[in-house]
Design a protein around this nucleic acid. Structure first.
Length: 415
DNA sequence: TCTGGGGTCCTAGGACCC
DNA sequence: TCTGGGGTCCTAGGACCC
C-alpha cells in the first residue's frame, strides 16, 4: 500500500535534559539527569550508561558516577515545548500534540506553499534548532505509525523519510519493540515464538498473533506490520479520566495515614475537574502495598461529581473496602484517586451527595451545593494567590515528596 | 533507601435486561 | 427435565505510552 508520505512525527530529543544543557552550557556533552530521588529524564550521555527515566536516583548514580543531577526548570520545559510545536503549526493547522515534546502533523496539500514534506521536515528541524535551541528528530511517512517509527530511527537529531513503496523494506529488519504497543510483555511473547523483527511479525498469521497477544493487540499489530494504519491526525482529543496519585514510601495502612492523603489527592483531582467544567461518575481508588503489588476499587455513581469533599469520602470508602479485602497487608506505598466517565457540566451544577452507604437521596442536597460553593471559592482564591494559598491536607502529607509539584503540574497540563 | 505520575485502551467475568 | 441469545453496563486487573 503506498500512501503519499505527508505525515510528520516530530520528537524533541531527551527533552528535559536537552533544555538543561541549553540553559546551562557547562552541562553540554555531559551525563545529566533531571530529578533527584527519581530520574525524570536523562541526557543521551547519561543514557549511554544505562540511566533511564523512572530509575531511583541512587541506582543512576551507581551506573554513572559522573552524573550531574539538576532539579529541573519545569516552566522552561513548558515554554520551549510549546515553542517547538508551534513551529510545526506554521506549516499546517493539522497538528496533533501527543505529549509535551512530541506531535504529529499532516502536511498534505501544502506543497505549493512550503515544498515537499521532506523539505518541510528539514525546515522544522532547522527552525527548532536556531529559534528554540533544541535538537529535534523528524520522521516522514504515509501513516502515523510509520512516521513515529521513522522519527525513532532518526534519533538523535535526525530526519528519516520513508518513501512510498519502500515501507516493507524499511520495516523488515527493525526490532518489534519499535512498534507502538509492543512493550516488555509483548516483546517477550513474540520472542518466544521466534519473532524478533517487524518483517517476521508481518509474516506471522494474524490469527496466531491474536492467540498470543489477545484480539485487539494481535489484530492491530498484524495491520501495522503490514503498514495498514487508518488513523488520521486528530487535532483535538477529549480527556477520559482525571487522576492523581502519590507514592508514600512505607506507611501503615491506617486511617490517620490514608484520610489526609486521600483528601489531598481528591482536592487535586476535583479542582482540575472544576477548572475544565467536567465531572465524572466513576471513582477509582488505587492502593499499592509494600511489595509493590497494587489493587484498585471503583464505584459508578448515578450522577457525576466534582466536589472535593464527596470525592474524598468516596475514595476513603473504597480504600477501606480494599484494606478489608487485604487485611494481611499492614503497609501501603502508594495511594491514587481518579475519576472517569466524564461529562461536561454547566458551571452552576448542583451536586447530590451520593455516598456509597446511602443511595437514598437524603435531603442533603443543600449540603452538596454548599460544598460545591465552598470549592468554587477555594478555586477562586487559588486563581488569584496560587495553589498553595489555601488547601486541604497538604501539610499533613509531609513536605518531602518524591516528585516536585512543578513536575506534577506539568504532567497535568492541557496540551 | 528497591520503582514517579500523568494518562489510554483492552480483557474477562458477572449482573441484568429483553 | 432442560434450556436462548444478544446487548449493555460495571468492576478489577493489566499492558502500554510519555
Amino acid at each position: 500500500m503506498t500512501s503519499p508520505a505527508t505525515i510528520l512525527h516530530a520528537d524533541l530529543d531527551a527533552f528535559y535534559a536537552s533544555v538543561e544543557q541549553l540553559l546551562n552550557p557547562s552541562l553540554r556533552g555531559k551525563p545529566v539527569a533531571v530529578g533527584g530521588g527519581v530520574v525524570l529524564a536523562a541526557s543521551y550521555e547519561a543514557k549511554a550508561f544505562g540511566v533511564r527515566s523512572g530509575m531511583p536516583g541512587r541506582r543512576a548514580r551507581d551506573l554513572c558516577p559522573d552524573l550531574t543531577f539538576v532539579p529541573g526548570h519545569f516552566r522552561q520545559y513548558q515554554r520551549l515545548g510549546d515553542a517547538a510545536i508551534d513551529v510545526l503549526r506554521d506549516f499546517t493547522p493539522a497538528v496533533e500534540r501527543i505529549s509535551i515534546d512530541e506531535a504529529f502533523a499532516d502536511v498534505a496539500g501544502t506543497d505549493h506553499l512550503f515544498g515537499t514534506p521532506e523539505t518541510i521536515a528539514g525546515k522544522v528541524r532547522e527552525r527548532v534548532r536556531t529559534e528554540v535551541g533544541l535538537p529535534i528528530s523528524l520522521g516522514v511517512a504515509g501513516t502515523k505509525h510509520l512516521a513515529k517509527i521513522a522519527s525513532q530511527v532518526a534519533k538523535p537529531d535526525g530526519l528519516v523519510v520513508v518513501a512510498p513503496g519502500t515501507e516493507p523494506s524499511f520495516l523488515k529488519d527493525l526490532p518489534v519493540e519499535l512498534m507502538w504497543g509492543v512493550g516488555p510483555v509483548a516483546k517477550a511473547r513474540l520472542a518466544g515464538q521466534g519473532v524478533f523483527t517487524i518483517g517476521q511479525l508481518a509474516e506471522t498469521p494474524g490469527r496466531s498473533l491474536e492467540r498470543l497477544l489477545g484480539h485487539a493487540v494481535g489484530e492491530k499489530l498484524a495491520d501495522l506490520a503490514r503498514d495498514r494504519d487508518p488513523r488520521a491526525v486528530a487535532t483535538r482529543r477529549r480527556a477520559r479520566s482525571v487522576g492523581a496519585q502519590s507514592a508514600l514510601g512505607r506507611k501503615p495502612a491506617i486511617e490517620a495515614v490514608f484520610r489526609p492523603t486521600l483528601l489531598h489527592l481528591a482536592d487535586r483531582v476535583a479542582s482540575r475537574l472544576r477548572a475544565k467544567t467536567l465531572a465524572g461518575r466513576t471513582v477509582t481508588a488505587r492502593i499499592r502495598f509494600a511489595d509493590l503489588h497494587a489493587v484498585t476499587r471503583s464505584v459508578t455513581l448515578p450522577a457525576a461529581i466534582s466536589a472535593t469533599g464527596i470525592l474524598a469520602e468516596i475514595g476513603e470508602d473504597l480504600v477501606r473496602a480494599a484494606l478489608i479485602d487485604h487485611s494481611e497487608e499492614r503497609t501501603i506505598s502508594l495511594l491514587g484517586v481518579s475519576v472517569s466517565h466524564l461529562e461536561v457540566c454547566p458551571d452552576l451544577q448542583l451536586e447530590l451527595p451520593l455516598g456509597l452507604h446511602d443511595d437514598k437521596r437524603r435531603p442533603g442536597t443543600r449540603k452538596g451545593a454548599a460544598r460545591w460553593t465552598a470549592d468554587r471559592a477555594m478555586d477562586a482564591i487559588r486563581d488569584r494567590f496560587g495553589r498553595d494559598a489555601i488547601g486541604y491536607g497538604s501539610v499533613l502529607l509531609g513536605n518531602r515528596r518524591a516528585v516536585p509539584d512543578a513536575f506534577r503540574e506539568l504532567a497535568e497540563r492541557e496540551l
